[in-house]
Design a protein around this nucleic acid. Structure first.
Lengths: 352, 352
DNA sequence: ACAGTTTGCGCAATCGTTTGTGCAAATGTA
DNA sequence: TACATTTGCACAAACGATTGCGCAAACTGT
């Protein structure tokens, strides 16, 4: 192992520029530039020599200079509530893969579900990126600051959590249909008393899932009384537990248990399942459960959790695709991905 | 809601530059530049007017131009195996939080545990970022390409998965001690026949955990026979299952079951637990289990999994801190974070 | 051999900033 | 009043690339 300097930060040799190459071969910088970008007006022989010298001098173009000159930055910004969540991190993976293929870099920002932080981020993003892909913060309803971007020529693509009044392309999963799939699956097994754990309905995804639940129940000729629906402040595990407690105390005072519950989020489903099981209620025999998002842990649970898959990676990838379409000036309006119900043990009553 | 153009990509007005402001106030660009950066040689009155006009013209500095001129990009690159893993995504969260405070942006790249991809990324990073924070790919042992960066003045900080022969600061958890904590915890409960599920030992983290396991056993006066140690190709759930099968078949042919197993990773522990339980083996009564990383799912499991916490967020945050120290020319050599054993049901034999 | 093309390259402006230096006007000193 | 300082701003050269234009030399054809 070769000895390394303690203070490598001092030995910063200047990077070789196009100018150094030019000097070395006694040609002009423009010639070097053209040679390296394979311009027709440079002879093949000279091109070859320039490329060779560039290689041996370890030349890498200074992207900042290129960006300044061309006006493009080859970078797209991504704003999500938090990266530390499977749905978002795998969506980002999709975005990154697409971007990587196109030679673009990805700048990541976390709004932490705070619209205030989101706004600051969005403003700072203007001029740093060619486009922005985002999933909006849930704590507010007005996200019009994204229009600053689109107004100044920076295309915006919203995925999953979209916002009204924003000039942007959207990539979403058909939440309404996803809910329908889940509820129909339960109905098919003869259950009628199906509850729904919802998130705040001002957020499109949760509102639509509620909508899908309601319309499917209605179509099946079932009436949905108030106690069927529980609106959590979010879809966390804790809220799921709170839901379970509510149901259990209602049961204690005589109300029948639900036959099944459709949760608008997996974590809420998880919390509730654990709480139910603690109370001696069996899943799925006593209560069948379906979640939403198909988080990785679903299949890891001792009672694997049925869930609606949102194809998070694909959503990210499509959002990336839509972004590049927009950058090319071919604006796609919106993409809706068909969800898929993954049936596991938690929702199968007649399991032998 | 105001009507938005279908083709906002065409209405790209030129961004206002420092030059526009100068023209409007009939001063020179240099004056504007200095005024906005609060240079002493500009009168307070003029500064105020310039700032005002800048605000009303919605001026935001063109960061690319600033970068080109100053040589700094205010961006740090992060290279991790994959973002879609709780450990890395929350480490990134730590990095991002620190960077955000310092006004730096974060560029994310995924090596997907491929050294080849990692090398391409690292090369492309030269000249795009001021520093690089990474956790190296596990499929190779030579990561010397990182030296290109440090040699050209771009500081490198490695966290968790480090590499020998790379001129970089490091932030790691004391894996050896973490293993010791886990094994001691098991020993204290009187167990002696303690197995270890290891990862490839050429990767520092797994090698050190193995080391910690071995030395703790040795100090307790216990001999470790070959079948105690299983070296998986990684620490995935699948490898965990494979481990369980190996143990079970050995048991079928007369060998006693382990009293406890210390896993070098939570996912492996999970896979094995599920497999054991499927075979009717009770956790922790028959086999106690301790994992490593304290992944979020540990506490969600019906038999919550004891695990060694690595403080991933903190590691990321410290890595960020170390990066800024290096950028300031105050090189920290290495930070070692003390791990903490989180004891849960899976490792408590004498639970009532 | 001469005009007309093509081929191959250099000159210089440009992108939006930062910053060293120069130079007037305003101020201070005697 | 005359000279030395300070104050406040403008000029112009960078940073590292891209690119329109110009212009010699090397070809083409007759």
């Amino acid at each position: 192992m070769r000895k390394l300097s303690h203070h490598s930060f001092q030995m910063t040799r200047k990077r070789t520029s196009i100018y150094d190459i030019a000097q070395r071969l006694d040609v002009s910088v423009s010639t070097v530039s053209r040679a390296l970008s394979d311009h027709p007006s440079i002879s093949a022989a000279l091109k070859e020599r320039i490329r060779e010298v560039a290689r041996e001098m370890h030349y890498t173009p200074n992207s900042v200079a290129v960006n300044l000159k061309t006006g493009r930055r080859n970078t797209i910004g991504v704003v999500v509530p938090g990266i530390n969540r499977s749905f978002f991190s795998s969506a980002i993976e999709g975005i990154e893969d697409k971007a990587y293929k196109q030679g673009y870099d990805v700048l990541i920002y976390q709004s932490k579900d705070s619209a205030e932080r989101e706004e600051r981020i969005v403003h700072s993003l203007a001029g740093k990126v060619d486009g922005v892909i985002a999933s909006v913060a849930a704590d507010a309803t007005d996200h019009s600051y994204y229009n600053h971007l689109s107004a100044s020529g920076v295309p915006v693509v919203l995925f999953d959590r979209t916002a009204k009044g924003v000039d942007a392309g959207t990539v979403i999963v058909d939440d309404c249909q996803g809910a329908a799939l889940a509820v129909e699956h339960l109905l098919r097994q003869g259950m009628k008393r199906i509850y729904h754990f919802a998130g705040p309905r001002h957020v499109n995804v949760w509102g639509n899932r509620l909508e899908g639940y309601l319309s499917t129940m209605r179509e099946a000729g079932l009436s949905v009384s108030d106690e069927y629906i529980f609106e959590g402040i979010n879809t966390s595990e804790q809220e799921g537990r709170r839901f379970a407690e509510t149901v259990l105390t209602a049961h204690a005072s005589g109300q029948p248990l639900p036959e099944a519950v459709f949760f608008a989020g997996d974590f809420a489903a998880l919390g509730a399942m654990l709480e139910f099981q603690k109370a001696g209620i069996r899943i799925p025999e006593d209560i069948a459960v379906v979640g939403f998002a198909n988080e990785p842990f679903c299949q890891l649970l001792p009672t694997p959790l049925s869930s609606v898959d949102q194809f998070s990676y694909k959503m990210g990838y499509m959002a990336g695709k839509m972004m590049f379409d927009r950058l090319r000036g071919e604006p796609q309006v919106g993409i809706v991905i068909a969800p898929e119900l993954i049936i596991r043990k938690s929702s199968l009553k007649n399991t032998k």
